[in-house]
């Protein structure tokens, strides 16, 4: 029999994460993944400690796109660019998992790494666990741990799904990777199905004319933004040759600066927290529970109000519902 494992102390973990201690990050990610009630309680405590620290200088980037668009290679190229500029990077790579068995194959991490020992990079792969194209409830708090410990956090997922939370409802800046000569993206944009990301990257510039034509078409399909709004860039990149990668990274920085200057960065992150709390509540109590608490809109307002700890509020709402449900009918 192995040694009995102790529950980690949230305060100690938060302090470790602040020091960028890799073992604390690893232990925190395990805790946030843990569905047992005691783990949930400690996870909430840890998250409230972390979101109260000032991590607005750190940046969370979401990278998404259809299978085959070359997201992994592009992530690898971005990661190198960030490392060369001296920034530390945390990566959350989300892969699909089987609905039937829950099993999943996760990989591609070694492809991202140049050196075998680089303490400035931390990669965790996650299975999507039944959330088609979307993200499981664990991803948001995990990304917060990463954000507290690393300068840049990259969340890589397959497709912008139509599930409740996708990567654009998680990251500060979302990049959609486009496969040249696939008309889908442009069709989606035109029909308004697609949630508009902040940056488009047309990958595989090395394909030549096809990639350039897709870039032109995409540019013309993008909705016009009012003055003062973020003007959506379309960047032609090649993970294979390195073309456009620095430019892409610069667009992410510019978007981060834009959000900070507008004062919307913190507010946007609070909305993302609210989405996560609602997802957790919906998981536990169903949509009926959400209605019972006043519905999505009112709940979002309640949850994003400045000052209140969303995690304390989460616990409060849970207790409210538990007592409501446990009343005799």
């Amino acid at each position: 029999m192995g040694p009995r494992r102790e529950w980690p102390e949230p305060a100690a973990l938060a302090a470790g994460i602040g020091r960028r201690d890799r073992s604390s990050v690893a232990a925190a990610l395990n805790l946030l993944d843990d569905r047992r009630p005691e783990a949930r309680r400690r996870a909430s405590e840890l998250c409230s400690l972390l979101v109260h620290g000032d991590i607005t200088a750190h940046h969370m980037v979401g990278l998404t796109g259809p299978p085959g668009s070359g997201k992994s290679s592009l992530s690898a190229a971005l990661l190198r660019t960030w490392r060369v500029s001296g920034r530390t990077v945390g990566v959350l790579a989300v892969d699909p998992s089987s609905h039937r068995t829950g099993g999943a194959l996760l990989g591609d991490r070694i492809r991202m790494l140049q050196a075998s020992h680089d303490d400035g990079v931390f990669i965790r792969s996650l299975a999507s666990r039944g959330e088609l194209g979307g993200l499981s409830a664990e991803v948001w708090p995990m990304s917060i741990v990463m954000l507290a410990a690393f300068d840049v956090v990259l969340v890589e997922t397959v497709g912008i799904g139509q599930s409740e939370i996708d990567v654009s409802q998680l990251a500060d800046s979302t990049c959609y990777v486009v496969q040249p000569a696939s008309g889908d993206t442009i069709q989606f944009l035109k029909s308004g199905i697609m949630e508009v990301p902040h940056v488009f990257a047309v990958n595989k510039a090395d394909l030549g004319a096809v990639a350039e034509r897709t870039t032109r078409e995409l540019k013309s399909a993008i909705p016009r933004m009012p003055d003062g709004d973020w003007a959506l860039p379309v960047v032609l990149v090649s993970a294979a040759t390195g073309r456009g990668i620095q430019e892409l990274a610069a667009h992410f920085d510019a978007h981060h600066a834009f959000l900070s200057a507008q004062g919307t960065l913190a507010a946007q992150r609070r909305v993302h927290q609210a989405m996560w709390i609602m997802k957790r509540l919906a998981e536990e109590f169903g949509s009926f529970g959400i209605e019972r608490l006043g519905g999505t809109r009112s709940l979002t307002e309640q949850l994003t109000r400045t000052g209140a700890s969303p995690f304390a509020l989460h616990e409060e709402l849970r207790q409210l519902l538990i007592s409501a449900y446990s009343k005799p009918v």
């Binding site: 890799r22 073992s23 690893a26 990610l29 395990n30 993944d33 998992s97 089987s98 068995t101 829950g102 099993g103 999943a104 194959l105 996760l106 990989g107 591609d108 991490r109 070694i110 492809r111 790494l113 075998s116 020992h117 931390f122 990669i123 965790r124 792969s125 299975a127």
Partner: peptide
Amino acid sequence: RDVGFEVVYDGIRLTPGQIATTAHEEG
């Protein structure tokens, strides 16, 4: 994977350091 594990596999030729780092980061 078929019996329900989440499996991390990164192919061949890994150094002992890479394997330990992966085990650590992936939990």
